[in-house]
Design a binder for these strands. Structure first.
Length: 286
DNA sequence: AACGGAACCTGAAAGC
DNA sequence: TGCTTTCAGGTTCCGT
């Protein structure tokens, strides 16, 4: 389930597992994940030491000595997992990095929507996918910039926020969660948002992302969302269920072919004038 | 240039 | 129970 918070957790895990480690062997299967590249390209990482893991939006950039790099996107179902090298790999492994401490890193991705791109770090940063990313949604949002971008599109605010050039890292879930927290209907025309509404939206985006990350906090970077069965989201996946903030029922609409969840009472469709309930902080608080 | 829709994949869940 | 259909959190490409 990789959107910004999940990718951030992946970045923390990769740092904990591998920064400072030397790659003993690297291999990849010939799949769509490495589209356009020979599997042996990944093998060139052998002998190099991982120096840093950087996240921008939903992308990860692993950099090694010698300015070598590996760009990673988890797509819809990709994940990095860590195991003892002696242990048998799990299913759907598309690439493996064997480390110098008898452990191995597997890139697993059943659907193969994810991507691994090998190259020099500079070249990877120059790829359109990385270069065109907007500012990271977790970095503190520039409200002026966001307002300017929303004002110049005819799309709905939901679809506009899905555009990684506007803000990097939001996906279908967190856009729905942020719009709910901000009391904004997803179908609102992006350009119809007032200054105050954009400010509220910017705050709500930060709240939604930080709340998701707070559930992952701990001494070790553990991907709790992988085990957590229950749905901690305020609206996502809760069609027909009660809204936590009012007596309304959560509904599902489809925008651009994808589901969006919302509470029609907390998120009125019209340009809202009435006073909005205070932002809720995840769980039950308030 | 901006937009909507289709394409790309597999697996799990829901429906019959 | 077993077969079929639907749906899934992303990006990219293509036609308008």
């Amino acid at each position: 389930m990789p959107e910004l918070p999940e990718v951030e957790v992946a970045a923390r895990q990769l740092r904990a597992w591998c920064v400072g480690r030397r790659i003993v062997e690297a291999r990849a299967a010939r799949t769509r994940v490495i589209r356009g590249q020979q599997p042996r390209r990944l093998g060139e990482l052998a002998g190099h030491t991982l120096l840093d893991v950087e996240r921008a939006g939903k992308w990860l950039l692993l950099s090694f000595d010698g300015a070598e790099g590996l760009l990673s996107h988890l797509g819809m179902a990709g994940r990095w997992t860590h195991r003892a090298t002696a242990q048998a790999p799990a299913s759907h492994v598309r690439a493996t990095l064997v480390l110098d401490d008898a452990s191995s890193l597997d890139y697993r991705d059943p659907r193969m929507f994810g991507r691994l791109v090998r190259g020099q770090v500079d070249a990877l940063r120059g790829l359109p996918a990385w270069r065109t990313l907007g500012p990271d949604a977790l970095d503190g949002i520039d409200v002026d910039r966001l307002q300017r971008l929303l004002a110049r599109t005819r799309r709905s605010v939901k679809e506009a926020l899905m555009d990684q050039r506007v803000l990097a890292g939001l996906g279908n879930i967190y856009v729905a969660e942020a719009l709910h927290r901000g009391g904004l209907h997803p179908a609102r025309a992006a350009h119809s948002l007032s200054r105050g509404e954009v400010e509220r939206l910017a705050a709500a985006i930060g709240d939604a992302l930080r709340f998701a990350l707070s559930l992952e906090e701990g001494p070790q970077p553990v991907a709790h969302f992988e085990e957590r069965g229950d749905n901690e989201f305020l609206v996502y996946g809760h069609e027909g269920g009660p809204c936590r903030g009012c007596a309304g029922r959560i509904e599902r609409i489809v925008q651009g072919g994808r589901s969006t969840f919302l509470c029609p009472r907390c998120q009125p469709a019209g340009r809202a004038r009435r006073k909005r309930p205070a932002l809720r902080q995840g769980r039950q608080k308030r």
